[in-house]
Nucleic acid binder design. Sequence first.
DNA 1: TAGCTCGTTGGACAA
DNA 2: TTTGTCCAACGAGCT
Length: 467
Amino acid sequence: MPNALVWFRNDLRLNDQPALQAALRGGFNPIPLYIHAPEEEGAWPTGGASEAWCHRSLLALDASLRERGSRLNILRGPSSKALHRAAAECGAEAVFWTRRYEPTIELRDAGIKRALRGAGLRAESFNGSLMIEPWQVESKQGDPYRVFTPFWRTASTQLRMPAPMPAPERFPETTPLVDAVSIDDLRLAPKVHWDEGFWRHWTPGEAGAHAALAKFSEHALADYAQARDFPADVGTSRLSPHLHFGEISPWQIARSIRQLPEAGDIYLRQLGWREFANHVLHHFPETPERNFNHRFDDFPWADVPDKTLDAWRHGRTGVPIVDAGMRELWATGWMHNRVRMIVASFLTKNLRAHWKHGAAWFWDTLIDANLANNTLGWQWVAGTGVDAAPYFRVFNPVLQSQRFDPAGEYIAHWVPELAGVPAKERHAPWISGHGVGGYPRAPIVDLAASRLDALKAFEHVRAAKPR
DNA sequence: TAGCTCGTTGGACAA
DNA sequence: TTTGTCCAACGAGCT
């Protein structure tokens, strides 16, 4: 049987794996391969928390390959060189992989595909990560969408659920590639074990992904519409890191949630945002670096001192819901989505820091850090992006806290200094004047005054001419 | 073409 | 305590 390289990237799974299936269908003997090439990620090399996740996900993939008689070959980049070398060494006739959609990577992969084909190899890429690829939908004018609702209206009518693709039970045995290194050699796991706490909450890998999905569809999906807004509850799917690393495909999730059509549609719509984010990133590849709305290019962002940014980063702003979120992020590598909006609004509106400060911190600390979602989310909250909220919408973190953490449980959990403060006063302890040891006596900015400042700064945008 | 409707996630204030 | 109204404008996308 001829050999084919199956190049694993952000698709670290064996089920529903179109690149692997292509190899099997084509009558090839699949050689699983992962290439470590951080310098090829452009301005956004994988952040620390994501690396820690990736380490464990690779271990999980390698373990399930070994159970099936194979193994994951790990090579160091550059990717193009590694692929050509590996193909030559094992006489592979083909290379198959699943597509990624980051602009830098799309460009790189197109070059690699050309080069492989130029060398006489069969090189093919597949969609294994999205329900609709970015170029599959366009508005009736033939433009990319800039507003979610019309995007999803069109996209959701075009969804065609493919049949499941089960993993093969056995792989043919292969000899390891000579240049292969071990997963540990990549040094993705942190030297100082700051990630220890993560793994009480998360199990990277395909099995962990399916366990998370099962838990979600059994317990939380029915209440998803309401419960997802309450950070103290387990109301969200917590599938984002698994999706980011491709340990599970959106179609696998979609198949599973069909059992509850109504709740399933609401959740599917959230997956739709992921599709939309990739659509926007593909068509507006400069948005990780630049405002989508150029009217903001002269926006008077505040020159926020590092000390203040650090207070935000480490949950010492004196606003309990903000601090709780930032500490949850630091401790677990993840933050509840409602709280992400609150901390992002606080940073970009109350502190009026440029959204890139927030995007950079999330990039480094989130286990689900994803260029499309991170960019869309930060630009959306900041008001600079697609579908942005009207300028007068500035989250009041105290009201948000009262509304979405009414019993103050989330705050008590992540800001234990405040656990002894009566629940009702926990949202804004400075009002009752409760002196609490170790917790800031007052917020680092006056919430009301900074809100007015932000609104004033927005006047600037309204006057700005679109470029 | 021109007009129409609508926009993930809000807040302040009045009644 | 709850509910309604306004904030204010614009451009995307459709018909």
